[in-house]
Each structure stands twice: as structure tokens, then as C-alpha cells.
Amino acid sequence: MRTLSPRLTQRIAFSILFAATLFVILPVAFIIGVILKNGLGAVNWEFLTAMPRASMREGGILPAIVGTFCLVAGAVLFALPLGLCAAIYLSEYSKDSRLNRAVRLAIVNLAGVPSVVFGLFGLALFVGFFRFGASILAGSLTLGLMILPVIITSSREALDAVPGSFREVSLSLGATKLQTIKYAVLPHALPGILTGTILGVGRAAGETAPILFTVAAFYLPRLPRSIFDQAMALPYHLYVLSTQVPNVAPKIRYGTALVLLAIVLLMNFLAIAIRSHFRAKKKW
């Protein structure tokens, strides 16, 4: 058998690698393309700012957009301080590797818990035990728990990436440990922490299962009045439109999907932009 010429082998290898890359990009492009094509016609000012009408077959999706924003904001308000404090403790204080390992294990497991389990957990703990009822509060806390691993992990990575010499210099200049963290460590970890938080936000905005039992309203054509109110949310609304309500114009379904997708992608791009901006500025 004749061996192939090196030139030919090169070209075959190149083609395979290129095809694999294409194969990864194609579905993403396809999804975005289909949703844009079918949904763009539905998205207009009224769609974004009006209440749904006629059992959601007409009108807009404002309450779902507002609901999603409330839920995400609540989740971050809960998960960011908690996750950041935990990350600071683990990275800057705890030298006990046993505790550190236990927490790392817990985080890995927390990250691996299926989102529907978070939903059930939220139902049992926040809705039931704490008697928050199905409410924005319960939904936010559930989503917050879900994004906690992302926030802790990225915060720890960001803290660990700050050179140890900064801490040493700060301490040697008579700063306390807390001052050192506040002035010599945290400012330089902030971009990384922000990036992780935004990725968490993107994830929280798109999940259906955790809000299913804890907050999501099937049809509530008004804005939420307090954190104990139920609310509509984009992912659940999409699910309802697609499976629970007969004779919804596809345009409205795709329009809703488009808005949700836009929010999530926007978050991801924002995270990437922040990261690359600070990476370019970093000087150590």
C-alpha cells in the first residue's frame, strides 16, 4: 500500500478539524437563525411593554420580562454577598485544608444538582418551611442557591490569581489583614468576580425548573407588587405558551424565545467583554 503524501495527510487532517469546528458552531447559528427568523416579526414596542391579553394569545410579555429581572436581581443580591464572603474566607483565611476540601466537594456537588431538584428543594424550604409561599422571594433564593457554585468558584479563582506579593507588601506596610483584603486584593479580583456573577445571572435568567414550583405564575397580567407576590417569568412563560395554551401564534412563541435568548446572550457577551477589557489592562 502506498502511503499518502504528507501534503495530502495535512489537508485531510485540516479538513477534519475544520469540519468538527463547524459542527460545533452550526447548531448555535441554526438556533439563533431560526429564532430570529420566526420571532423578529413579533418583537416590537408593544410586545415588550404591554400586558398579555386574550389568554396570552395577544398583547405583550412585559410582566414576564419584569418578573425575570426581579428574580435575577434577587438571586444576585442573595448569592453574591454570600458567595463572595465564603470565597474570601476560603481563599484568604482558612488554612485548614480539610475544611477547604470539604467545601470544594460540596460546591462540585451543588453545581451538579439537577435544576429540578433545586426547584423541589426551594418548594420544601422557602415556600413551605419558611412560609414565603410561591413568591419572588422564594424563587430568588432558589435561583441564588443554584448560582452560588458559579459565584464561589469564580470568586476564588479571581482571588487566587492576585499575586501573593501584594498581600505581603500590604501587611508589611502595617495594614491589617482585613485592610489588606479590602485594598490590596479585592480590587484586583473584582473583574473576575464580576465575570462569574454575570455568567450566573445568565444562567438564572434562563432556568425554568427552579422557578416552576417556587414563584412562576401561569398567567398574571400585572406587575409584581412585592417580593411576596408571584410573578411571571420568561422561561416558564415560554413553556406555557408552547405546551399549555392552544392556538398561540408561533410568532408570539418565537418572539418570547428571542427576548429570553437576547437577555442571556447579552449577559454572556458582557461577561466576555469585561474579562477581556481587564485582561488587556492587567500589568502584573
Binding site: 499575586p163 506579593s165 501584594f166 505581603e168 507588601v169 500590604s170 506596610l173 502595617g174 495594614a175 491589617t176 485592610q179 485594598y183 490590596a184 484586583h188 500589568k283 502584573w284
Partner: peptide, 17 residues
């Protein structure tokens, strides 16, 4: 090891603390 801040802020890092 200059801290990643201005010359001025480096010098006053201790006094500020």
C-alpha cells in the same frame, strides 16, 4: 513590588491604612 495603583497612592498606602 509596586502595588497596581498610582505612584502617589503607593506612597500613601500605609498612612491611609
Amino acid at each position: 513590588v509596586p502595588l497596581p495603583m498610582t505612584v502617589f497612592e503607593n506612597v500613601v498606602y500605609g498612612p491611609r491604612r
